[in-house]
């Protein structure tokens, strides 16, 4: 079986990339191929990258509070492009109350502050579709 490929992406204007970079490194250390998008990605850019790089997972990180718009944009566009096999997960400062709506939109899991990185690795290894 091939390697798990993950796109770690920062949508919107938020510049807090500490978490995204830590997760990217941790996933690499777990043997995955991680594509890091850099900052300020639009939903279009994220989905095009996911398609070209043929990733199994899109990990979105956002601390600005704009997740209800920007995470949902990415999930909606993924559906439009038939990426139902791509696991979309999110992390950042995300209030508990918002999680059900995000899940409904297509974000499989949400990881808040204080999540150990192994938990994210484990989640991906368990739920990735290959």
């Amino acid at each position: 079986m091939g390697k798990i490929r993950v796109l770690v992406a920062k949508p919107g204007l938020d510049g807090h990339d500490r978490g995204a970079k830590i997760v990217a490194r941790a996933l690499r250390d777990a043997g995955m191929e991680v594509i890091y998008s850099g900052l300020h990605q639009t939903a279009d850019q994220i989905i095009t990258t996911a398609i070209q790089e043929d990733v199994h997972v899109i990990g979105l990180s956002l601390l600005s509070g704009a997740h209800m718009t920007l995470f949902v944009d990415v999930a909606t566009l993924a559906k439009k492009h038939d990426l139902q096999n791509v696991l979309i997960i999110g992390g950042g400062i995300i209030p508990e109350d918002d999680i059900p709506a995000l899940k409904k939109a297509g974000i499989s899991a949400v990881f808040g502050p204080g999540t150990p990185v192994e938990k994210i690795v484990e989640y991906i290894e368990t739920y990735v579709k290959r």
């Binding site: 390697k3 990217a24 490194r25 690499r28 043997g31 191929e33 991680v34 594509i35 890091y36 998008s37």
Partner: peptide
């Protein structure tokens, strides 16, 4: 060692 890679050229 891990077989992993960080691919950041798209930035």
């Amino acid at each position: 060692f891990t077989g992993g890679a960080l691919l950041g050229d798209r930035i």
